[in-house]
Amino acid sequence: MNQPLFLQPVFQERIWGGTALKDQFNYDIPSDITGECWAISGHPNGQSTVINGEFTGKTIGELWNDHRELFGQHPSPVFPLLTKILDANADLSVQVHPNDDYAKEHENGELGKTECWYIIDCDEDAEMIFGHTAQTKEEFVSMIEKGEWNDLLRRIPVKPGDFFYVPSGTIHALCKGTLVLETQQSSDTTYRVYDYDRRDAEGNTRELHIDKSIEVTTIPHKTEAVEPVVEKREGVESTKFVEAEYFTVYKWKVDGHSSFVQDQPFQLASVLDGSGVLKVHGEEYSLTKGDHFILPADIETFEIEGQVELIVSHV
């Protein structure tokens, strides 16, 4: 085959969504409350579909099950990663995700959810909720019961280009006015701790998952430091943001022409800005902002030309 797999994303409407996915990436979104672009996904709740080559029309899940050779025979029972772009047009609920063991037991064998965020764009005074102040489980429970949210939740400012690693067990929430690329385990399990007493169009508050949240939250909060490693070589500045248990994530800033060797079973790539050309075995594929693709195992070398920024990940 020796071809990249370009993908059609799936869009999810959310109470906190907006129109930034259309405004910034020119996507054809379903409504003005579109919160999530599931860009590279094999999760049953929203599967990306191949739009080029011999596997056109196939979902990632189908390829994972039927053509594992594309992924270097990786042993995971499910496609392990999920790339999203999130438009937080309003505050997201304060939430926490379980680890693999807890999710397997309590969520029908679902994976846990460790994730990370690259801030694509945000309002000038944007912030996010990241962690909490409680030192013990008793204190955590007490502050939740008393509704002491301003004292419990840690708020930090964010700016474009920031990167955050969010392991399972971390209390967190994106806040209004942020556009984020998220790399995560392939999981759709979220426990809501607090939702600002918001009501939907029918006047209902959203379900909270207080008991499960208390069980899975890391107490006291631990911040995993992100120490980017920058490597410059011909035509590209590569920034490795994180190398963790479930994924490694880079930003590639190509200016001109650069050659790459694929030393992973497969890689996921999302074009955040600019345009260029991907060259694989003599074939050329145009790259434009908002494109997402997988580089399968049988692509050993490739080239990228142009002025283009990508977020790239692998297991």
Rank of each mutant, 00 (worst) to 15 (best):
191 Y>N: 08
196 Y>G: 11
228 P>I: 02
3 Q>F: 01
283 E>K: 12
32 D>P: 08
122 C>F: 09
287 L>C: 13
35 G>K: 02
107 E>I: 04
10 V>Q: 08
240 K>P: 01
53 G>T: 04
251 K>A: 14
301 T>Y: 00
56 T>N: 04
285 Y>L: 04
310 L>Y: 03
194 Y>W: 15
29 I>C: 01
60 I>T: 02
197 D>R: 10
192 R>L: 07
27 Y>H: 05
132 H>G: 09
190 T>G: 08
28 D>H: 15
152 L>V: 06
222 K>F: 05
58 K>N: 09
132 H>D: 11
208 L>D: 05
209 H>V: 10
192 R>D: 13
76 S>A: 15
205 T>M: 15
62 E>A: 15
188 D>Y: 05
234 E>N: 13
15 I>E: 13
194 Y>E: 09
173 A>M: 02
120 I>A: 15
21 L>F: 04
189 T>M: 08
116 C>P: 00
34 T>N: 03
284 E>G: 03
187 S>P: 08
181 L>F: 07
115 E>P: 07
119 I>L: 11
150 N>G: 09
64 W>I: 05
35 G>I: 01
202 E>C: 12
48 S>L: 08
12 Q>M: 09
95 Q>I: 13
161 G>T: 09
268 L>I: 07
301 T>K: 14
261 V>L: 13
204 N>A: 10
240 K>E: 14
163 F>H: 09
42 G>K: 01
201 A>G: 10
298 D>L: 04
171 I>L: 13
146 K>W: 02
36 E>G: 03
171 I>P: 01
170 T>L: 11
162 D>N: 10
142 S>C: 10
116 C>T: 13
133 T>Q: 14
306 G>C: 07
134 A>H: 06
251 K>C: 12
9 P>L: 11
135 Q>V: 12
185 Q>P: 07
275 S>L: 04
160 P>E: 08
138 E>H: 11
6 F>H: 01
269 A>C: 15
112 G>T: 03
131 G>D: 02
139 E>T: 09
198 R>W: 09
233 R>L: 00
50 V>G: 02
91 D>M: 06
73 Q>A: 11
187 S>G: 12
315 V>A: 09
252 W>V: 00
199 R>N: 11
187 S>C: 09
133 T>G: 01
84 K>V: 06
162 D>Y: 10
